[in-house]
Nucleic acid binder design. Sequence first.
RNA 1: GCUGGUGUGGCGGAAUGGCAGACGCACAGGACUUAAAAUCCUGAGUUCGAAAGGACGUGUGGGUUCGACUCCCACCACCAGCACCA
Length: 805
Amino acid sequence: MKNYDFKTIEKKWQDKWFKENSFKAIDFHPTKPKYYVLYEFFNISGNLHMGHLKGTVPSDALARMKRFQGYNVLFPIGGDSFGLPAENAAIKNGINPHKFVEEGAKKAFEQSRKIGLSFDWDRTFCTSDPDYYKWTQWIFLQLYNHGKAYKKEGVVNFCPNCKTVLSNEDSQGGKCDRCGGEVIQKKRWVWYLKMKEYSEKLLDNIDKINMAESLKEAQRNWIGKSEGMQVAFDLFNDKNEKLGKVEIFTTCIETIYGVTYVVLAPENSLIDSFKSNIKNWTEIEDYRKKTALRSEFDRLSDQKNKTGCKVDGLYVVNPVNKKKVPLYLADFVLAGYGTGAVMAVPAHDQRDWDFAKTYNIPIIQVIEGDSDRAVEKKEYLSANSKMMNSAEFDGMNVLQAKKKIADKVVSLGAGQKQINYKMQDWPFNRQRYWGEPFPIIFCDHCGTVALDEKDLPLVLPETDDYLPNEKGDSPLSKVKDWVECKCPKCGRIAHRETDTMPNWAGSSWYWLRYTDPHNPNALADFEKLKYWGSVDCYTGGTEHITRHVLYAFFWQNFLYEIGVVPTREPFLRKMGSGLILDDQGKKMSKSSTNGVSPLEVIDKYGADAARLHVHFLGGYEDNTPWTYDGISGITAFLDRVWALQEIVKGEDVSKEHKIELNKLIKKVTDDLEDLKLNTSISALMIFLKKVREDKFITKAELKAFLILLNPMAPHITSEIFENVFKSQILDESWPKYDEKYLVEDTINLPVQINGKLFKVIPVAKDILQEDLLAKIEKQYPEVYNKDVTLKKVVYVPNRIINLIK
RNA sequence: GCUGGUGUGGCGGAAUGGCAGACGCACAGGACUUAAAAUCCUGAGUUCGAAAGGACGUGUGGGUUCGACUCCCACCACCAGCACCA
């Protein structure tokens, strides 16, 4: 027999699978149930990297197993192509981004075939294809027409050097991600999507999805639900004339008797109408200017030194004890959260304490504990300390007082329960060329006008200038004959929105499009959406997982509410792929000293070996350090699998291998369902070892073994199958195991004396306790006989027996 | 700081509360070979012992249990996310 020549064999199968599109998903299959496996689409940038080998193979294995199990499997792939790589290539090297994407996608798909991934090639698309972004624009139109998209002036991160607005992610540490320059805060008109409205629905989605707890927690954190009270403090001038009220949000109503000042966010416009009562208005204006210039980074990095500005001439009154307290502006209060105003209780909040110390504001302790520092919520609640300086609540336990004080505030008519969320509405525009244009026109006469659906897609115009203008407007603003247009309503000259949508837009609904990727009349046919339903298993990297999944939930919920999709749940299960780490313990990249590309590994050892090796290193969600060490174990395993062809003897499952084979089927079936490839591979190795010891494998055993291994090593198993059985492995079905063959007739049973292992003895399966004790007495009379009284016997059949003397 | 997760041989890693270290690498010994590689077989947690066998052993310290890597409490370390969120 010839040696296993992976180069020829793997190419043969890859070409065949591609030519025949062997893994085509069938809409409305008459008999098979559907199963939808999704791997996040490729970010079209350069070559596939190690993360793809780690991330894709388990979902491929799951898809392949499900097909054997009789499911009609949808396992598609596409390209997330409206991204920075294409735009940067355009800016830096003058490459046309369309061309960049076209070539990049082609390369990514080709490389994925070299991994042996079983995608349905009839369903590919890229987010920058006009046929696709037509529907991204369409969804935006629906959002706009349903009042879920609005434009308002907001504060954004801006890089003066690149003249562009940056997301928080692109401006971490106050530095521009592109040029490294200083990022400033700038006012701009921003499109927002009303995501905040969906907070509870998103939390509901999080509860329902099958996903790692750490990922769920990160998402709940992002939404940041917090329950507290909104309380009104009446606002007076120094002539004791009531001017209005300041609404604050607090989660610590129990500390309200300790309020010694109230703080507004600098941006809060509440006091602007009382200018005439304020004695230090110029000082306030200066402070506002100063904080606006302060970058996000400065604000965060300077948390110790609180800055603020007293509002001279105004004061507020605490509703519970009618005490006057001063009013301040300070930039530690965020305008966008809660009411943009807080009551400050320095005795029980470190931040308020720091501020009070800086501005010499009194500190009133209202809950017992240390008085030389801020005793915070967590501490006094867990100790359930006693109240003090709180009028009728003195001496009460804080947990009880929290409820009673809340009741009092409500009965005074000064406040009510309130839920707040950290998550804000989604800022949805960028000043970039390479993105979906908004289907929006501004008309001096009609105002903001949405395009008609029939005018979609609004195609991105060609240009060779990909840089924003001096004012930081999008490059599209320079394409005059595109910007100028007729108002669809009145026909007068109007101009288009020149910002484009963020990269996230296209990825927030793409799984829906795979069900009907070429539909010109709808984002997807409703019946097809219903047939394919929610994604059964969604895998991918964890890099942007929190926001991506939340955006996906948001859009799917919205589309469900307007009747376009049949369910609120985009995904039933989400698995985040761990990273391949380099020798520094960081994510492997080109700059890693031991940086390796998957294609290099495939070239040296073959795709099957590469797939097995990477997944034998560790679990799907674990980070695993990269090494070539150990790959010889995998290639030796594959060589031995290949050599099985020489020891095929007999037809049916032999009695020698019956138990082992049944155990193997169960193990691999269960583990692949959980994407645990490492233990599946180990089980296959154990079975192989047994067969080689016995020097034979029957045809039935080989068939089962090859099918079980096929999802992980599809090429070699397809080849051996064809050689031995003269037919195609893809036509086979998944082997089944029989419960009664999972335990051997004779078991090695551990015998413990007083909880310590004494001996391991062979006994018959399901042996009765009395028979077992008799056997022990006969063999080891020194440890157990009639004269020994046992305090207790713990016997777990087929597992263990423990004799307590 | 907050939240979540992880911690097991020389290494990657296995173990529904029931023989810890499966499987693999590296290592050692042997077979084959003139030799090496490849391949095949065997061994191996640490430690005391010639051996039989014993002691210790899953980050640390306690607890629950006949029995704990697994459950509970406290602490330490690392990783990730969030971070002035009132």
